[in-house]
Amino acid sequence: MTNQALAFLKRAQAALILIASCGAASAQMSPVGNWHSIDDKTGEVKSLIVIADNGGVLKGRIDKLLRKDADQKAVCKECSDDRKDKPLLGLEIIRGAKQVEGKEVWEGGKILDPENGKEYTLRLTPVEGGKKLEVRGSIAFFGRTQTWVRVL
């Protein structure tokens, strides 16, 4: 192979790597994936949440309970809708969030706190290159933000 051909192949390879890494980086700037929810008070990992995209609408469910004292057979006693008395494992806690046009923010959905059965208006914002997810639940002007950590 000539020096010109080798140089061309190296440039082509570098371009492909760059394109692939840009695609991977932008894919990470989405809430879609697996996340560890973190307890606000203790800093302990609470659960594994799986967020999926269904035609541009996000939904998320509890996949595993990770607290050392977690009851794996627990049900949502406090829920008042179709999730009442359903097992926490597999429970859909995120419903209806959509990406805000032109932004890396998802809103318009609801998030359920299975500990108190309340639903909150939801805002999801990937941060730190998609390694973390700011999860904001609010009612009117009152709310709180948790930071979840992506599970790779």
Results as ranks from 00 to 15, higher is better:
Val32Gly: 01
Arg123Asn: 04
Val127Glu: 05
Val75Trp: 08
Arg83Pro: 15
Ile111Gln: 05
Lys132Gly: 02
Leu152Tyr: 15
Ala97Phe: 11
Arg144Asp: 07
Lys64Thr: 15
Lys10Leu: 15
Lys77Tyr: 10
Gly108Arg: 09
Lys64Ala: 15
Gln72Asn: 09
Asn3Ser: 11
Ala12Trp: 11
Gln4Phe: 14
Lys103Gly: 06
Lys103Phe: 00
Met1Gln: 09
Asp82Ile: 10
Leu9Cys: 11
Gly33Lys: 07
Arg123Met: 01
Met29Gly: 04
Leu65Glu: 06
Ala140Asn: 09
Cys22Gly: 12
Leu89Tyr: 08
Ile19Ala: 10
Arg61Cys: 12
Ile17Tyr: 05
Glu134Tyr: 04
Pro87Val: 03
Arg83Thr: 15
Pro31Gln: 02
Gln146Asp: 03
Thr2Gln: 14
Gln146Val: 02
Glu44Gly: 13
Asp82His: 07
Leu6Lys: 09
Leu88Thr: 03
Lys98Asn: 15
Leu9Arg: 05
Ile38Trp: 09
Gly109Thr: 03
Asp71Gly: 07
Arg136Met: 02
Lys118Arg: 13
Gly102Arg: 00
Leu58Arg: 05
Lys68Asn: 06
Val100Pro: 14
Arg67Cys: 00
Ile111Trp: 01
Lys68Phe: 08
Ala52Tyr: 05
Trp35Thr: 08
Ile94Thr: 09
Trp148Pro: 00
Gly143Asp: 04
Leu112Val: 04
Lys59Asp: 13
Asn3Cys: 08
Leu133Lys: 00
Ala12Ile: 13
Leu9Glu: 13
Ile94His: 05
Glu115Tyr: 01
Asp53Lys: 07
Lys98Met: 12
Ala27Asp: 07
Gly130Val: 14
Gly96Pro: 04
Leu18Cys: 08
Gly102Ser: 01
Leu122Ser: 01
Leu88Ile: 04
Thr2Leu: 13
Arg61Ile: 12
Arg95Tyr: 06
Val151Gly: 09
Gly108Tyr: 13
Lys98Trp: 14
Val151Pro: 10
Lys84Asp: 14
Cys22Tyr: 14
Lys84Leu: 15
Glu115Gly: 08
Val75Ala: 08
Val45Phe: 05
Val50Ala: 13
Pro126Trp: 06
Gly102Tyr: 01
Lys84Arg: 13
Glu115Ile: 00
Met29Asp: 15
Gln99Tyr: 02
Ile62Asn: 03
Glu104Leu: 01
Glu119Trp: 03
Gln99Gly: 07
Lys132Ser: 09
Ile51Gly: 02
Pro126Met: 12
Gly117Pro: 13
